[in-house]
C-alpha cells in the first residue's frame, strides 16, 4: 500500500486529544495469495495504524504486504442476514446437480 506520507512531512495530526480509531489489519503472507484479516489495532490515523501493524504481526513469517482500513469505513452483513440464505433450492444451478440427476435417454 502506498504510504501517503512518503516524501513529504505529515501535517501535525489535529484530532481531539486521545482520539483513537479501530483499524482492521489485512496481511498477505504469500505472493499471489489473498490478504487475510490478521488483527485489529487502535491508532490515531491510518499511517500510525500501518506503522503499529507492521510490528504487531508475526514478522518472522515474512509477510509480503499489509493493508489497514478503519473499521468505521467498512460495512459488513449480519450473520442473520436473510439475503445470505437463498429461499429456494438452487442446487440445479451447479453442474454437479446434473451428474446426480442423470436422465437416461432411451434410443
Amino acid at each position: 500500500m502506498a504510504d501517503a506520507s512518503e516524501g513529504e512531512r505529515l501535517t501535525p495530526y489535529e484530532a481531539e486529544r486521545g482520539h483513537q480509531d479501530v483499524y482492521e489489519v489485512f496481511v498477505q503472507w504469500q505472493r499471489g495469495k489473498p490478504h487475510e484479516h490478521a488483527e485489529t489495532v487502535n491508532a490515531s490515523d491510518p499511517d500510525m495504524a500501518l506503522t503499529l501493524a507492521k510490528r504487531n504481526i508475526d514478522l518472522r513469517s515474512d509477510p509480503v504486504d499489509i493493508w489497514v482500513a478503519p473499521r468505521r469505513a467498512m460495512r459488513r452483513v449480519s450473520p442473520e442476514d436473510p439475503s445470505l440464505r437463498p429461499s429456494t433450492d438452487r442446487s440445479y444451478r451447479q453442474t454437479a446437480w446434473y451428474a446426480e440427476h442423470r436422465i437416461e435417454v432411451e434410443e
Partner: peptide, 11 residues
C-alpha cells in the same frame, strides 16, 4: 516510528 511520533506528539 520516531518520525510518526515526532509528528503526532505535537498535536
Amino acid at each position: 516510528h520516531a518520525d510518526r511520533w515526532l509528528d503526532r506528539l505535537v498535536a
